[in-house]
Design a protein around this nucleic acid. Sequence first.
DNA 1: TTTTTGAGCGTACATCTGTACGCTAATTTA
DNA 2: TAAATTAGCGTACAGATGTACGCTCAAAAA
Lengths: 205, 205
Amino acid sequence: MMGVRAQQKEKTRRALVDAAFNQLSAERSFSSLSLREVAREANIAPTSFYRHFKDMNELGLTMVDEGGLTLRQMMRKGRQRAEAGGSVIRISVDTFMEVLESNPNVFRILLHERSGTSAPFRAAVAREIEHFISELAHYTEATAGRAPDFARAQAEALVTLVFNAGAAALDMKRVDRKVLADRLVIQLRMVAKGAEALQHKMENR
Amino acid sequence: MMGVRAQQKEKTRRALVDAAFNQLSAERSFSSLSLREVAREANIAPTSFYRHFKDMNELGLTMVDEGGLTLRQMMRKGRQRAEAGGSVIRISVDTFMEVLESNPNVFRILLHERSGTSAPFRAAVAREIEHFISELAHYTEATAGRAPDFARAQAEALVTLVFNAGAAALDMKRVDRKVLADRLVIQLRMVAKGAEALQHKMENR
DNA sequence: TTTTTGAGCGTACATCTGTACGCTAATTTA
DNA sequence: TAAATTAGCGTACAGATGTACGCTCAAAAA
């Protein structure tokens, strides 16, 4: 059981993380936030920040980990919906777009730091994306009977296309997102179809 | 004919652009450069910067435009090589990897500002990428007989995969790049094959 | 009860930033 | 030749940043 003191500390820590997430937007990346800004938004003195994080990097990495987890949990929930029947691709895309709409800033930090200037950040984001890829590769291997290497390449392509579309969607209004989602579905089908065709070609030799 | 004075001005302007390009690296993005840093590297006083650019944004947009142009020119040269025969996909990928290796910073600014915090930057990068996509869509339409909408979706997927691989390649050593390039070729073939299959499916209905 | 711990604060400082302003000196124009 | 233009510089300033240091005072440990 947590003492009064530890509870309060956790509360402040959350306030810091939330403050940072809330300050993210299309015009504001994590790396452009200053320690003082985050502290201000969380209503603590700048120097108190250090009671919770060594520096801004540590806060950022926490956010990436937390964000990746959130995203994966939501996508997994969506996949359960797909098990009821219907196009897996379609349902996954729709789920993804919903996640994007309700947690844009979680996606933003992953998206932006993926091509950021800090190697640890890039590695952390890569790790999160890797989770998506390997979950998907495993799924494809099992249900479509792909060879492991092939399943991997296919999954990577699928995730790349989805992430990229997500980035584009962030800037868009709902109507345009719909068009984007439809096009994305077509592109994902291209990859799926093509992977199948290539696999057959290799087997019949 | 340019007077002595205009020549000198152009030279200094170039020094600024080059200074900025040279300061880019995996650890340093354009948006993290300060006006003073760039001026220092170009050996002019900070305040002289304003004789050439309104602010850092104007310099950055110049770099994006210039970079996009460079990239397209190099890719076009590569495409001529492909006309001699061989796999278009393979040759294009190899060309791209060579371009990447000889102009990493040109690619870096496009890559990073694509998901940056400045709307004008994002728009400028999107414009450059759009050039790649429409050149490719036109090519696919002509040589593979795709329907326009389909060719567009396909080209978009191809370019997305290539750019994404490029981003990954920036961090890698030569050996790993080779593995990456091979996988990229497979992914691009998936898209090409799949687009073909989907197109046939639509025609036979 | 007494002692120790530690979250949060306020002050302070060195460093860096963008840019306003006015000058110089060389080129260009008249 | 005389006048106008302008690239580049030096000085100066206000604002923001990260963080060192020492204090307080409530909670936890002894």
